[in-house]
Design a protein around this nucleic acid. Sequence first.
DNA 1: CATTTGATAAAGTTTATCTTTATTCAGATA
DNA 2: TATCTGAATAAAGATAAACTTTATCAAATG
Lengths: 303, 303
Amino acid sequence: MAITTHLKSLQALELAVREGSLKGAAERLGITPAAVGQRIRALENYLSTDLLLRGRSGLQPTKELDAAIADLRVAFEALDRATELLDFQRVSEIHIVADPDWAELWLAPRLPEFREQHPNLRFCINGAGDVPVRLGSPDLRIDCDSRNAEILFHDILVPITGPDNTRRIAEGDPDHDMEGMPLLHLRAQLDGDDHPGWVSWFNTYGHRESGQDRGVNYPNARLALDAVRQNVGFLVCGLSLILQDLKQGSVVNPFPFSKHLPATQPYALTLRHDAKNRPAIARFVNWLRNKARETQAEIDTLK
Amino acid sequence: MAITTHLKSLQALELAVREGSLKGAAERLGITPAAVGQRIRALENYLSTDLLLRGRSGLQPTKELDAAIADLRVAFEALDRATELLDFQRVSEIHIVADPDWAELWLAPRLPEFREQHPNLRFCINGAGDVPVRLGSPDLRIDCDSRNAEILFHDILVPITGPDNTRRIAEGDPDHDMEGMPLLHLRAQLDGDDHPGWVSWFNTYGHRESGQDRGVNYPNARLALDAVRQNVGFLVCGLSLILQDLKQGSVVNPFPFSKHLPATQPYALTLRHDAKNRPAIARFVNWLRNKARETQAEIDTLK
DNA sequence: CATTTGATAAAGTTTATCTTTATTCAGATA
DNA sequence: TATCTGAATAAAGATAAACTTTATCAAATG
């Protein structure tokens, strides 16, 4: 028994008969009337038979089609039921809690790619997103603090500055040039040892004796990065968060990447206990792992 | 109600479940297993759900799919029935009687293009072809003799010779060069006035006083043309029959096409009384008219 | 343990499908 | 009758889907 071909043609045909016009079918299919005509004609050509008598006002199936139209209707009704059951419309929600800087600067720029392929998924990231927060623990947690979590990648911390300094750096000694510009700090860098900043960097690589913690403080990396892009000063920042900026040249590295500090902890992923059973989440995590692997590779290449 | 999308994915899915393997489904669909996997995966991605648990030996629908598989089976069984009814396999026969030279030299080279788009059609042309002759009148008749027939195109008759003469013609006087080479005749050209040949040509354009009907006789144009291609001599031939040869340079025209004779009658088409009701024939005739129009245009351009 | 078989991933190519634009045509409207 | 309108169509070019190929992987089999 041969397998049915021209499925889309048959679908268009059945719909055109049901609607009484190519135009009507086109609207339901979300394509142009010309496309519907082409689909049907393709089938007619294949069969070397006319199937539809096209009048200006209304269509009429030929007797060849008449014989089959009942089966076509049965078929597409059954398919529509199956579609319903398979829950084409289902919206699955993924709730994520993550390091805010990472969420804003690493995840957010990469997410649209994934969402394009998974239009049925809704995200809630750190309380914001497509859907409101849900009570209880999130499906995923990504940060640098959790123990026993699956490691995504090990970041490194590097000094960066704005694009206007590119020329100056090329000509002279970056140490010298830095003298005139403020150091930018993240609040977290000054609060504890978990987030190494300028203090650690100068302690390791020298270049400046005093005033290592002077300068401007920013509450989060996004704001600090905005300032860097506008040439406000120099910042020590996770390389993973600025890969795109470096490629575009909207920020630059005044020192070779070999002068970096390792992050104290890797970014790591914790899954909610029952999340593994949800295919949507499994698929998202899978994507996340791949993207993390890419990032790790880029970091390792540069450092 | 939304319209079912991913028809091919659903088809592959249903078939894979029925066959118990991607490979089996692939064979029935006439594509590679990789393609089947891709179809199914596309749907799974779209739904963000797993549908098929792939084991090395045997597949198993997930519970999501289980709910829908019955409807899918119903749908594709109905489609297969519809397919049957629409007679995907139907073989329609077209019986043609035509001027033998035209059939061999004009129709035969053009027909494959049409047949490629209409694999269900079988031809019987002048008793030969895919199917044996049928009693009674043919569906189509194409010749230059019938009256009250639909004109396809008006041919012109031109002298031609083989490619080896190209150089000699370029250098000198074709009249002179013709002296050493035999004139080729078709039997029909010598028999009556319907098929002008060298006699008419020399009477019109001069160049030779005697021996206009001497030379070699051929029973049909194909054989004569074979001889021309091998530089046996000079022939007066319908331009429509050698357009491709001229383009390829396998025959050449020693005289400008302005020195042509008009064919006494155009090629014309007669349809059997009931042929108009057969869509396959209507479509073939339509194609024939288009091709004839093309030929007419080429002739008019050259002459 | 080596081999076979079926599924998968990645990449590149081919083919199908769709849109756009312009044209045609039957019937409605003036 | 003329002309207008709305739907279908034709042609061409652009886009996107689908397929094949090649290589890899993992389970099952000998």
